[in-house]
Design a protein around this nucleic acid. Structure first.
Length: 676
DNA sequence: AGCACGCCGACT
DNA sequence: GTCGGCGTGCTC
């Protein structure tokens, strides 16, 4: 009999934190999947490289079935999971099991053998490789910088249209030629099909699989196994793919590395981009981070020489970035300006495009018809009964919808408070903008793309195809349309009402706005013939704001330098490191009381002496969601290790504290939070 | 999280 | 007299 350490799926709120010990007949290799008894049930476990010694005298239960058909998970995979669990303060079991396909856990050894046999026959799509495009001097230089040295991290700062994807393709080709596997991450599931098409065309003799939440459980298992067995050469996917098991990983590409989607917002709140960098170090793989507007975290690392900076400022094929012009809303008629509607210069520009048969893209980051309805007689507004937020008026189906809890009702025909039939929309969303454009531009074909029009699978593709086919003159949309789609005939991009982000309490709002507008600008003038006439129009009350000055000059470097200086002075990332302790309770008082108690515990273990500062508990900006009150507390330190050391001391104490707070529903910690 | 055990109200 | 409410406590 030998003792083996096994991790099982135990969530955060559990006293089981590390591996458990079991008896086995023979030593089992680390990374093997096993069935083990846990309490009264049998669960899937993973044999772990090391675990705590079992208490002497404790009777150990025996390991059940071992999945001998499955090659054990590589040591590097276990190390990545262990690091992620430690860094994001979750149990190893939770992170490990969340990283595996759900179906794998249910499989018996025999069924597995069958699946593996089928996979052995997996063949590349076939076909002939296309002729390679000639590289620009900038692409050449970027690729020359990628030496293929172990654990190199490179930040590819390339303008929209500078040909970043071609650099990815060449870098992947090199990794494959060296007998290694490549992983390519994209922020959104929407972007995987077009990337997959691009890679299959370039690598017809390679096996390519995708990993994202849109796959069926069976597909996910198949793709995961293909990667794990080394049958797949290329893995494309969203943030979850960073945990794929790849025995020969040689390259990780993180496209649009600044995108907030890489940060998980539930369970272990990991950053796939940060884990990709860590993973590259672990496995001696090159990591290539690409963006037109890098995150300030990555930019800062590059400036400090930790990452290699590769710059591609020029558009391929002679395209130039559109001229950026501002419509000063202080100078347009008051009634128009006040409703943030379409200014005469913008309408004029749109009309001209329609007349010339060119396309326009109008951006408004707000779904629905109007963000709130209001009674003209009394003070009634369309608040959500369950949340501290307004319900949004959706005109298509005549509903009031809460975007936080989903609570939906038919819009009332009269004010529910005073019976006055005159209730009116306040402000505007994409629905209302679409309607207004249709009225203002008679004869123009206006279409809208946002989360509401693309709810059904495949509708986004269909709508984009109709835009590409030239069936649309003016496309209205949220940030969804600014991401990655290559519109050849767009010569005007307009931002209707972007100012709010300039004065947001969220310190990253400016960074996100700049990225969004730069990305949107990149949608125009992709075609060299039209590039000269291409314009981005921004309606603003603050045309002299530094963010807009940087946007006008397409000058990311200036924006980054300004913002990094501000962050340094304010003690914010990347110059400081943050964690958020969040609490949800029946009442706001209970939520804050728990945080206050947590704060006292932190004082007792000497937070400030450890270089860690705790701020007072505050309600979250939307304090109540689905009748649960939410509060949070910011924890900050100039040193990442100091913050980590403190958290690993503090959090176990908070588990113990939990019992004394009956009204507390749940709590969680978010390391490196995106918004505070 | 499951899935127990455990101690108090309306039914065959 | 039992079925079952979900309160707290453990899982090698």
């Amino acid at each position: 009999m030998v003792t083996v350490a096994v991790v099982v799926d135990t969530p955060q709120h559990s006293t089981v934190r590390g591996a458990l010990s079991y008896d086995a007949q023979v030593p089992l290799p680390a990374g093997s999947l096993v069935q083990v008894p846990l309490g009264r049930r049998t669960v899937c476990g993973i044999v772990w490289p090391q675990g705590p010694q079992p208490e002497p005298g404790v009777e150990l239960k025996p390991v059940g079935e071992v999945l001998t058909q499955l090659p054990p998970l590589p040591a590097a995979w276990c190390a990545l999971v262990e690091f992620a669990a430690g860094y994001y303060q979750r149990s190893v079991g939770e992170v490990a099991h969340a990283a595996l396909p759900a179906d794998l856990r249910k499989l018996a050894d025999k069924q597995l053998a069958l699946r593996l046999k089928k996979l052995a026959k997996l063949q590349p799509a076939g076909g002939t490789a296309p002729a390679l495009p000639t590289l620009t001097a900038e692409q050449d230089a970027a690729l020359a910088g990628l030496t293929g040295d172990a654990a190199q991290v490179a930040l590819l700062h390339g303008s929209t249209g500078s040909g970043k994807t071609e650099v990815y393709l060449r870098a992947v080709a090199r990794a494959l030629d060296a007998g290694r596997q490549a992983m390519v991450l994209v922020p959104e599931i929407n972007l995987t099909p077009q990337l997959e098409a691009r890679f299959s065309e370039r690598f017809p003799d390679r096996v390519i699989v995708s990993l994202h939440s849109g796959l069926t459980p069976a597909q996910r298992l198949r793709h995961w196994l293909a990667a794990h067995l080394g049958r797949a050469d290329i893995v494309l996917g969203t943030r979850m793919a960073v945990f794929a098991s790849l025995p020969r990983l040689g390259l990780v590409v993180v496209d649009e590395e600044h995108d907030p989607s890489y940060k998980s917002q539930e369970g272990a709140r990991y950053s796939a981009r940060d884990l990709a960098v860590y993973r590259g170090k672990l496995e001696g793989a090159t990591v290539l981070l690409g963006s037109a507007t890098p995150s300030l975290e990555s930019w800062h690392q590059a400036e400090r020489g930790r990452y290699l900076k590769l710059a591609m400022p020029t558009r391929v094929g002679g395209g130039v970035l559109p001229r950026v012009r501002f419509v000063d809303m202080n100078h347009v008629p008051k009634d128009v300006a006040h409703s943030h509607a379409l200014s005469p210069p913008l309408l004029d520009a749109l009309q001209r495009r329609v007349a010339q048969g060119e396309q326009s893209l109008v951006l408004l980051n707000r779904r629905g018809y109007a963000p709130v309805l209001q009674c003209l007689e009394c003070a009634w507004k369309s608040g959500c009964p369950h949340c501290s937020a307004w319900r949004v008026f959706h005109r298509v189906d005549r509903t009031l919808r809460c975007h936080h809890c989903g609570y939906t009702e038919r819009v009332p025909s009269a004010c529910p408070e005073c019976g006055n039939p005159d209730i009116q929309p306040v402000g505007r969303g994409t629905e209302r903008l679409e309607e207004q454009l249709a009225v203002s531009l008679p004869g123009a074909r206006v279409a809208r793309i946002d989360a509401d029009t693309t709810r059904l699978k495949g509708t986004l593709e269909a709508q984009l195809a109709s835009v590409h086919a030239g069936e649309v003159d003016v496309l209205v949309g949220t940030q969804m349309v600014a991401k990655g789609h290559d519109f050849r005939r767009v010569t005007l991009v307009a931002a209707v009402n972007p100012d709010a982000a300039l004065f947001s309490s969220d310190f990253r709002a400016g960074e996100r706005l700049f990225a969004l507008l730069m990305q949107a600008a990149g949608r125009a003038g992709r075609d060299a013939g039209q590039a000269e006439r291409s314009v981005m129009l921004v309606q603003t009350w603050h045309p002299t704001h530094p963010l807009y000055a940087a946007l006008r000059a397409h000058d990311y470097d200036a924006f980054a330098a300004d913002t990094l200086k501000e962050r340094e002075m304010a003690g914010l990332p990347p110059h400081a490191h943050l964690a958020l302790l969040r609490a949800e309770a029946r009442t706001q008082e209970a939520a804050q009381a728990w945080l206050a108690a947590a704060s006292s515990t932190a004082d007792e273990i000497g937070a400030s002496a450890a270089g860690v500062t705790l701020y007072p508990p505050v309600p979250m900006s939307v304090a109540r969601v689905a009748n649960i009150e939410r509060a949070q507390m910011l924890v900050e330190s100039g040193s990442r290790p100091a913050l980590q050391r403190f958290l690993s001391q503090w959090l176990p104490q908070l588990h113990a504290l939990r019992g004394e707070h009956k009204a507390l529903v749940r709590w969680a910690v978010d390391i490196d939070p995106l918004a505070i």
